[in-house]
Every structure is written in C-alpha cells, then in structure tokens.
Write a protein that binds this DNA or RNA. Structure first.
Lengths: 366, 366
DNA sequence: AGGTAGTATTAAACCGCTTCGATTGATCTT
DNA sequence: AAGATCAATCGAAGCGGTTTAATACTACCT
C-alpha cells in the first residue's frame, strides 16, 4: 500500500525505468503478441514497482472508448427505491468490476424526450454499451438503437427490435404458482395484474391462463384485474378493493403479478378483515424483502436479480469486445417460495432463514 | 433530435465551420473571458447546429480531471439493498447531473484492504472527489485521506479527522421521540440500539438519555440494549427476545435506533403475542418504506435521504471547484412521523398518503 | 503620427496512451 | 553467402481537447 505522495507515474516512467520504449510497454499492458517473455516479465516488474496504473482518460482518448457502461432506469422504477432494480444494479456493478468497467447509473423520464434530457453519457460518448432495466418508452429504445451502441435489456423485451435481453422465466414461475394453488384445492383463482403491455406481466398472465386451461379450470372475468397502470402497492390495494369489496362471488385464491401488488392486496384484506390465507390465498412474484415482513409472510416466486444484472454485463462486455451484434436472450430460472400467505404452511419459520436452490440457467442464442 | 449518422463532430469541426481557431472555441466552451460577444454567439450557434459535445476523455486528459465522483458504500450497507442508502445515492445522482458530473458507485469490504481491492477509480485516478456513505473502517478513511482528494461523508462523522460531513439531526430526532412517548404517559422507556461506535446511533442514544434525564425519568439498565453488532432486522429481533422474552419487568415503550431494529422487534412481539402498541409502544428512526407495511404502522423519524445525497454533492463540487479544504458540516432537519405503533393514533390513514413538512437546513461552517 | 495599453485571436505544445509502419536482428532457404 | 521470412522493438503520428505565449487588432493618448 503505497501513498501517492509524489506525482503519479506514467507509461513513460515505466518505459524509462525498464529501458524500453513506450510502445513496448503498451504492448505488454494490452497483452499483445510479439513481446519476448523476459521483456514482458521485466515490464511487469517495473509496473508493480512503480504501482503504475494507466490513466483512464488517456486510454479512452486513444482508443475512442470509455470503459463505462450506461445503466438506464426509468425514474419511477428507481425513485420508489424499488428494491427489485437495486439488486439488479448491484449484480451489474460487481460483474462490471471483474471486466474493468465502470457503471454509470442514470434515471430517465419514462417517455418523451428531447436532446436536453438525454443522459449526458450519450452526448459525450462516454459509454461503450447500454443496459436498460425494466420497461421503458419505445421512443427511448429507438433513440438508443440509433446510437449504434451495444444494448441489452433486463426484465424487458421487444419482439420487434431484436435486442438482446435477460429475463426471468416468468412463464414457469406463473405455472408453478397456479399449480401450487390447484394442489391446495383452489379452483377459483384470480389474477391481480397491471399493464399487460409490460412483457413480464403479460407472460405471467398468459401462463396463468394456460395453466388453468390445461387443468380445465374455469375463471370468472371478474376475478381478473389488469386495469392498473403500474404494478405498485397502491394499485394492488385499489384493484383488490374493486375485486373483493363488492358482494360478488370472490375467488378463493389470488395470484398477483408481483409482490408489490400482492402486498397492496394484503393491506386491503387486513383493513377489510378478510383473513389470509383462510378466506383468500395470496401469492406474489419477485420475492422482495418486504414479503417477509408482512403477516402472514408472502408466498412468492424468487427471481435471481443480482444474477440477471451480472449476466447482462457479461453479455454486454462480449458484445463490446467482439463487436458482434448477435442477438441473444437469456432466461434465468425461478423457484417457488412457499410461505404462509398461500395457506400451505402453518408454522412461522425462524427469521431470515430461508434456503433457496441455486439458480441455473437456460440460454437461447437466436 | 438528430441522429449520429456520420462521425461525431469535434472541436475542430466547430472551429472550421465558425471560421475561427480551435483555441477560441475552447475559450467559449469554458466561458473564459476575452472573447468578443459576437464571436461567442457565432461559436455557440455552430455548436448547436452541429450538436457538438466535447468528449469527456479528451477533456479529462487535458485537464487531468475525470468529471466523476466516487461514491463508496460498504458491502453490507448496500448488499442488503438497504433502501436507506439507495435514496441517498439517488439524491446524489440527480444533483451530480446538474453539475455535469457522473457518479461511480462502488461497494467495498467493511474494513481491511490491500491495493488489490481498492476501488479501481482510485488507482486510475478516475474521480475528482469522494463521497462515503455510512460507517466505514478507519483504514479506509486513512487511505482515502492520503489520496489528497476532496472527501465528504454522509451519515457518518469522524471527529478526529476533520472531514466534511452531511448528517441528519439525530439528537433532535431522538428528543422528539422521547418527548412523544413521555407525552403519551410512558415512564418506562427502553432503547433498542446497536454498535454505539456508529456516531449516528450514539447521538440518538445520548439524546435519548439526556431527554429522559431532563424530565427526571429513570431508566433500568435492562431496558437498554446496545450489544448488537449491526442495526439490522434480525438483530432487532434477537435483542427484543433478550429484553422482552424473560420474566423481568418490561418497559412500556421502546425507542429503536432505526427502523430495521424496530421492525425486528415488532416481529418478535407478534410471534410472542405482545400487542403493539398496547403492551409496548415502539418507535423507530429513518422512515423507511417498510414501516408502512407492517401492522401497526411504525411511528418513526423521517430523514431526508435524497436531500442528504444532493447536499453532499453540492459541497463536494464546491470543494473540487475552489480547491478549498474548508471543513463544513451540514445537519439536515428531521421530523417525527406519528403512526400507530406508538399508540398515539388509532385510525389507519389511507394508504400511501402522508404529508411531511418540507425540510430546512441548518449549516455550520467550521 | 507614433507609441502604448488593452483586448481578441491564434499557433503550438502538451496531456498519456495506442497503433501503424519502419527498423533491426535472428533464423531459415537454397 | 545472399535473400527471404518472421519475431521483437521502436519512432512518430494521432486521439480531442486545454493552455500558454505570441501575435494581431483597436482605441486611446500626447
């Protein structure tokens, strides 16, 4: 651990001290061929001795690249401190580090835009690739594609645009949920959703319908709510009120498109004294931490968020390195986490002790 | 909105098109003196026309600065997706944007370190200043100070090091809590804390004791818990079990050093069927979102997290710009948020509808 | 008109690295 | 032994800005 007491050393210092030219040092630095083994060793020794680290901006200027990855999140996704996306970001950051990239996180308004409100890193060409997490306005996508930079989406897909993406296996997750509820004897299973234009929600919804159909279970239209604009807690509350507040026949189980909606629903039930899970079994999706705090604890589907982030970075780095624009979609595995809100488990497990199977991956190069 | 169809334009393109030299354009770019008004106008027009934006790395190389701010968080703070720090980060990012800085967020191990695990941005001299959020090992602080970069702490202080810092007004917050409980008639008020070496917790603890003393209210040692290593939910749970599980005389009210501890405590009470607030009033600190989810909802102290982040950036930018090393400490105001867990309010308010007074600031330049 | 003091503009050096083409030296052919 | 080939090294140009010192232009005195 040496202090940067004096001036920081440059490639020239290294070259001089090693008795070689700057170019040779550069070759070593970048692991290029045609450097004698001893020369390489020598240079590396000097580098270590001087604690030399190439300067980012100099390198960036010379190579016309920044060493940064742009991470874009819409304001509403992040500003509600959505822990879902926080974890994704964290996974990205850790992975980026491995590859010597920095991540520039920026939030943007969800749709319209003019050049003024563009993330600065676009204008200043300060990123080598882009990660977009969550649903975002298509105007953004258009713009981003026009930049000609490698792009990868997380938890979002656009069939039309042929973009690489990392998503959770929403269909399997939803299927697991519905099968779980069926197994518990439910036949009146409702769906608490939001904007079906969000592909993840649509996938969950479709798998829900398909699974019910496959088991020849009918569903009343009034048990399905897909009118809410966003899958947030308040909206779960409101949708639950509409669906359960009246006198109409209620479902006995409810699959919410995500945990926030499920928690909103539970909040309504608590206020209306509808006992969960006895009068209504509730299941969410995402496995956010708050699901552990409520009473009863929320049965849900675990999504490997950090992993989604790290995979996205890995793919993106490949795209940058190989200058490939091969579109590839990765689906991360999910698993059902059974707690009390679905009525399958009666005892409360010790706090913060929950073992989840490790994730595996299915990849599809398309 | 123009597409970057061709090559991106450089300062030379601007100069040529404006019929001026590169240097003049640079002068305009940096708002330097001695440029004729019309010349300035002309240049600006061309800049707009070409949609020119100076390239970060070129600028960085020339000025030996990066345009980045390093944001350091210990792993445990962030990896638990602590929403507390997420919000602080968000505030920083928004503010940084105003000043044309990027934020590089990195997490570090909480203590020991060798050069290998240093954030890369140090080694590559890729930041112009540093923000440290939350408690961090003193070895880190030493190292960071040695870098000679401007530093500002958020939610942490080190009397010995004379560093600038942004903190919440912990003392006032704790005083408000205790007075609130006293007003409700409590005289047996316990404290659920953790590591007193964390200055924020220590401040809250001291204000708690002082306020009680000022009102001549005694407190049993068994009602004070400060043994937990970190102020996290599990630890609140354990501490509550130790304090309330036995047969000894219980306090009737408990002030937890933060919301996570309070929630852990509530979890224990729920399992042990200790009714809140009837048998025990509970108050937290921080106002994290989960406090709204539990039943009863948590009375707490609101801390303006985004604001703390934005203030930190503002101060840091000043330090960078003025090359000043004036130490200054800013304390952001807090306010009591009364909900049901303290027993002062019986009705449940409508979901997600809570009006908080706007924050004001007290500043002390020292 | 000539000198001077500013003010506005510019040429050129420089920041630290990469990369291309040239150079050198060694090894292989015939 | 003279070329040819190939590996290792190096010199110099270039990336896109900033900054310094020199120069050109004005306006003002006397």
């Amino acid at each position: 651990m040496k202090r940067p007491s004096t001036r920081r050393s440059t490639i020239e210092d290294v070259a001089r001290k090693a008795g070689l030219s700057v170019s040779t040092v550069s070759l070593v630095l970048n692991n290029k061929a045609n450097v004698r083994k001893e020369t390489r060793k020598k240079v590396q020794a000097v580098i270590a001795e001087l604690d030399y680290h190439p300067q980012r901006s100099a390198r960036g200027l010379a190579t016309q690249s920044s060493g940064n990855i742009g991470f874009i999140l819409t304001e509403d996704h992040f500003s509600h401190a959505e822990p879902f996306y926080t974890k994704i970001f964290l996974g990205s950051e850790l992975e980026a580090r491995q590859h010597n990239y920095y991540i520039l996180l920026t939030t943007v308004a969800s749709s319209v835009h003019n050049t003024k409100e563009m993330p600065r890193f676009f204008l200043e060409r300060n990123v080598d690739g882009i990660i977009v997490a969550g649903k975002i306005g298509s105007s953004w996508i258009e713009y981003i594609c026009d930049m000609g930079l490698p792009v990868i989406l997380i938890d979002y897909e656009l069939p039309r645009h042929r973009l690489s993406a990392v998503t959770a296996d929403n269909s399997s997750g939803a299927r697991l949920v519905v099968e779980h509820l069926l197994k518990l004897g439910h036949t009146k299973i409702g769906f608490l959703g939001a904007d079906l234009k969000h592909p993840s929600i649509a996938e969950r919804y479709n798998a829900y319908r398909d699974t019910l159909a496959a088991h020849d279970v009918a569903v009343a239209q009034s048990w399905i709510s897909t009118d809410e604009p966003t899958p947030r807690l308040e909206n779960g509350y409101h949708a639950a009120r509409r669906m359960l507040g009246g006198s109409a026949a209620r479902p006995t189980a409810l699959f919410a498109a995500n945990d926030a909606l499920a928690l909103g629903c539970m909040k309504f039930c608590k206020e209306s004294e509808i006992p969960i899970p006895d009068a209504l079994a509730v299941v969410g999706f995402d496995n956010i931490e708050s699901g552990l705090l409520v009473e009863p604890r929320l049965t849900t589907v675990n999504v490997h968020r950090e992993e989604m982030g790290s995979i996205a970075v890995r793919r993106l780095v490949e795209m940058i390195r190989d200058k490939s624009n091969l579109v590839n979609r990765t689906t991360t595995q999910v698993e059902l986490v059974i707690r009390e809100s679905s009525g399958a488990r009666r005892q409360s497990a010790p706090v913060a002790k929950e073992v989840l199977a490790l994730a595996k991956l299915k990849e599809v190069a398309s």
